[in-house]
Design a protein around this nucleic acid. Structure first.
Length: 887
RNA sequence: AGGCCCGUAGCUCAGCUGGUUAGAGCGCUACGUUGACAUCGUAGAGGUCAGCGGUUCGAGUCCGCUCGGGCCUACCA
């Protein structure tokens, strides 16, 4: 796809009028790769900065959420790199156990093949082929975005290195007694044929039925009533529970009920789990098919009966009429039988929550099963602490409570999965079924004293390996230079929807295995939604594909859009209009550069500029640039990408293009020459491009390479040029105040023209009178500029003549003389309306300024500005009155 | 049931520790095209900051309640 790229000289101002991102974006991505600019060296004198990519599914496709996260990660990495950090963005992918295996199984199904037909080995071969086929997609897409990853350090969770880390972690936890194997109630997904963790179960509200069933009491004519949403589980009942304090059922204690249909004896047990208020206050207990009942069963030593199997069908133990039936068919059958035999008391509609398998969508079947569990309670406490004591920051902080709540209510993590794609559990069984957990078969064989061992067929939850990602990718468990240099990493950027799946587990395992947090800061982004704020989904057809967006608008526009929409604590509505808006910004930057290059003659970019000897417009833009540059680092340090983007956008478009470039025109044309305008233009452009580079890497590189003299900043690439900072020597309040007045005067005159309904070319004479002497001087010096920008005939410095239309802005009285022009009715009405507003404003201001409380309690500064404001409003009122009064 | 977030211009959103006249983008209106850019320029219209109460000299901002919307956690059979 790529013709060999040549390093031709890119200069000259023969630029197209419209910019075309396609023409240069991938060229630069290739060239950066050839120059190897993103590879980090270790050890290094530079301070380390490191971000681990949240590894996407190795065979997946990046969605806009990935694009958002990647844009931010790349922004941070490029910014730190330019600041002189040894900045590593480590890329990689996840094997994504269930998701990927499902994909391949579905693919096989089209050939009429099941994985069981192939057998484990052959099936895994297919999996690896699949991985090989799609693996390149992720890199290709990240390249499209302009990601500055160090691909020499790319990792995959099933790589040998990471697999070793997984085995090491497993063995350690096992030896510490934190990983155990046991028979417990788990969330079983019949369609997937595996257990899943609590997090992989999503509860959905379901319109169901509540069946009230009569159970005879043994040795009497009494019948008690129990309620259930799942009558089919009755077949596995082994008790009926009541609350120990429930007076109504005191007489039942020590006795038993008889299970209808089956006739089994069900002892009554007293357990506080029963809610006296709900239903009859009696609960049927099915220890093997309900998580609560499982606990009750344990407490009372009740037997369990497995009536539903792993395939979701009734087992032989369910009895002849049921064995082999699907669990939902069994429900219908049971209801029918109960009704026929007079046990069914009533059926009510009942809205309740039912756990569904997140991956397959079907209802979870709670089953008792032998699985591997990880006790994370101790690690959870540590993870809680590091947020509380500030060793790790969650941003936005509003997540702290959720973090706390989840970690304090955490249960053992079921880590085994009945799948083939993943890290096979490093446990081997001898012929007696004893388990030996070890790093390898050999080690297990030594422990067991035999090599007649069979490895546990199950694999680990995908998130088990992801939990080790921040350090396994750096070489852990070995003590590597990378690990020493980059761990703990700097920032984690991810969406809040995997806070528990992934972030919490990384923190827990990081603290446990390395004794340190895996990252200092977690930046939780919102979820990207469509223009209406609706979650994107394939079925709704509202999915925006980053590749399409890049093709339509360019990667830079997409990146800038995403970064500016990343406000804390909010989901992100993305629409094409916004991206088009930032593409226009790219075009603006392109054309501003085109203008500068075509007009600056021999001038060159200056590494530094001494403002002494420069005229006010030059000193103004340098001052503005310095202030904006000084605002970017703090914003990026706080991860406020939206604010950083907005400031740069407004500086470049507003200050630089709308004003400064316009201000240079009379100077460049020779109409009103000023010193070193070209140098200033180029230097401001250079720094602006550098400031924007982390957000818009391609465009800024493409343009920066064309600036004469850019080599003095960095010989090769803007990627490695220093990130600009504020230049205190450039900043001047006086110049900014004066130029601000000039800008406001110009704006006011233009508005006057429009208000008076004057054609743009109608003659106008201007009188300007500044209250501040320095402002007056600046206006006088720049008189040709003001004339150029306002297109007035003449400007006189001094008080307004009789009959002029007067106004006051920024302490400057602006008076326009318009020949015999009469004031129109419309304009007169507008002025009167404005005067009226001004009057109420003045009244309010006077009231406050005469308030003793305000004067004594408010800070002097506030009182001061209040007074100045009042004075200005009064003057403005005078001006307006005279304008209105004279008609 | 508990927790969290949100309600600011027609739309999507900023507004930091309370302090002048509440901002942006898009959209809308009028005008403008002999050269940086029509992916543009100039000027403008548009908001009782969901509601009520409180704290304060001062509240979009802090506190309480109400209404409306969203999300997350939870075993009510």
């Amino acid at each position: 796809m790529s013709e060999p790229s040549t390093i031709e000289t890119i200069s000259g101002a023969e630029m197209d009028k419209r910019f075309d991102p396609q023409s240069y974006e991938q060229k630069w991505q290739r060239r950066w790769a050839e120059m190897d600019v993103f590879r980090v060296e270790v050890p290094s004198d530079k301070p380390p900065f490191c971000i681990m990519i949240p590894p996407p599914n190795v065979t997946g496709k990046l969605h806009v959420g990935h694009a958002l996260q990647s844009a931010i990660q790349d922004l941070l990495t490029r910014w730190r790199r330019m600041q002189g950090y040894n900045a590593l963005w480590l890329p990689g992918t996840d094997h994504a156990g269930i998701a990927t295996q499902l994909m391949v199984e579905r693919h096989l199904a089209t050939e009429g093949v099941r994985r069981q037909d192939l057998g484990r080995e052959k099936f895994l071969e297919r999996m690896w082929q699949w991985k090989a086929q799609y693996h390149g997609n992720i890199r290709r897409q990240l390249d499209l975005l302009g990601a500055s990853c160090d691909w020499s350090r790319e990792r995959f969770t099933l790589d040998e290195g990471l697999s070793r880390a997984v085995r090491e972690a497993f063995v350690r936890l096992y030896r510490e007694g934190l990983i155990t194997r046991g028979e417990y109630m788990v969330n079983w997904s019949p369609a997937l044929g595996t257990a899943v963790s609590d997090l992989e179960v999503e509860s959905r509200q379901v319109q169901g039925k509540l069946y009230h069933v009569a159970y005879p009491v043994e040795g009497s004519d009494e019948r008690i009533v129990v309620a259930t949403t799942r009558p089919e589980t009755m077949l596995g009942d082994t008790a009926v529970a009541l609350h120990p304090d429930d007076e109504r059922y005191r007489h039942l204690q020590g006795r038993a009920a008889i299970l209808p249909i089956v006739g089994r004896r069900l002892p009554f047990v007293a357990d506080p789990m029963v809610d006296i208020e709900f239903g009859s206050g009696l609960v049927k207990i099915t220890p093997f098919h309900d998580p609560n009942d499982f606990e009750v069963g344990r407490r009372h030593d009740l037997p369990g009966i497995r009536v539903i199997g792993r395939d979701g069908r009734m087992t032989g133990e369910a009895g002849p009429g049921f064995a082999g039936l699907d669990r939902f068919e069994a429900r219908a059958r049971m209801v029918e039988l109960l009704r026929d035999q007079g046990y069914l008391v009533k059926i009510e509609d009942h809205v309740h929550n039912v756990g569904h398998s997140q991956r397959s969508g079907e209802p979870i079947e709670p089953l008792v099963s032998t699985q591997w569990f990880c006790d994370v309670s101790g690690m959870a406490r540590q993870a809680l602490e590091v947020v509380q004591d500030g060793r790790m920051k969650l941003l936005p902080e509003s997540w702290n409570k959720t973090w706390e709540h989840w970690l304090t209510n955490i249960k053992p993590w079921c880590i085994s999965r009945q799948l083939w794609w993943g890290h096979q559990i490093p446990a081997w069984y001898d012929e007696q079924g004893r388990a030996f957990v070890a790093h390898s078969f050999e080690e297990a064989a030594v422990q067991a004293g035999t090599d007649r061992l069979i490895q546990d067929p199950d694999v680990l939850d995908t998130w088990f390996s992801s939990a080790l990602w921040p350090f396994s990718t750096l070489g852990w468990p070995d003590d590597t230079p990378d690990l020493r240099t980059f761990y703990p990493t700097s920032v984690l950027v991810t969406a809040y929807d995997i806070l528990f799946f992934w972030v919490a587990r990384m923190v827990m395992s990081g603290l446990h295995f390395t004794g340190d947090v895996p990252f200092h800061t977690v930046h939780l982004t919102g979820l990207v939604r469509d223009a209406e704020g609706v979650k994107m989904s394939k079925t709704k057809g509202n999915v925006l594909d980053p590749e399409d967006l890049i093709a339509d608008y360019g990667a830079d526009a997409l990146r800038f859009t995403l970064a500016s929409l990343d406000s804390p604590g909010r989901d992100i509505p993305l629409n094409r209009d916004q991206i088009a808006g930032y593409r226009a910004f790219g075009n603006k930057i392109w054309n501003a550069t085109r203008f500068v290059l075509s007009r600056v003659g021999d001038a060159r970019v200056q590494p530094s500029i001494d403002p002494a000897g420069l005229a006010a417009p030059e000193r103004w833009i340098l001052s503005r640039l310095s202030r904006v540059a000084g605002e970017i680092d703090p914003r990026l340090e706080e991860l406020r990408f939206d604010e950083a983007c907005n400031r740069l956008y407004h500086f470049f478009w507003g200050d630089f293009c709308d004003w400064y470039i316009e201000l240079t025109k009379p100077a460049l044309s020779g109409e009103a020459p000023r010193p070193r305008v070209g140098e200033v233009l180029l230097t401001v452009l250079d720094r602006s491009l550098r400031l924007l580079h982390p957000m818009m890497p391609f465009l800024t590189e493409e343009l920066w390479q064309r600036l004469p003299g850019h080599e003095a900043i960095h010989p090769e690439t803007i990627c490695l040029a220093p990130y600009p900072k504020g230049e205190p020597a450039w900043e001047s309040d006086e110049v900014e105040t004066g130029m601000d007045a000039l800008i406001q005067v110009v704006t006011r005159v233009r508005a006057l023209r429009a208000e008076m309904g004057l054609p743009p070319k109608a003659k106008l004479d201007l009188h300007l009178a500044a209250q501040d002497e320095r402002v007056g001087r600046l206006l006088a010096e720049q008189e040709p500029l003001v004339r150029f920008l306002t297109r007035v005939e003449s400007i006189a410095m001094g008080p307004a003549p009789e009959g002029a239309r007067r106004d006051l802005v920024a302490g400057v009285e602006v008076a326009a003389v318009v020949g015999q022009q009469e004031m129109g009715e419309e304009e007169r009405r507008r002025l009167l309306k404005e005067l009226e507003k001004l009057e109420t404003e003045i009244a309010r201001s006077e009231e406050r300024l005469s308030n003793e409380q305000f004067l004594s309690k408010a800070p002097a500064q506030v009182v001061e500005t209040g007074r100045a404001r009042l004075a200005e409003m009064k003057e403005r009122r005078e001006s307006l009155r005279s304008s209105v009064g004279q008609t």
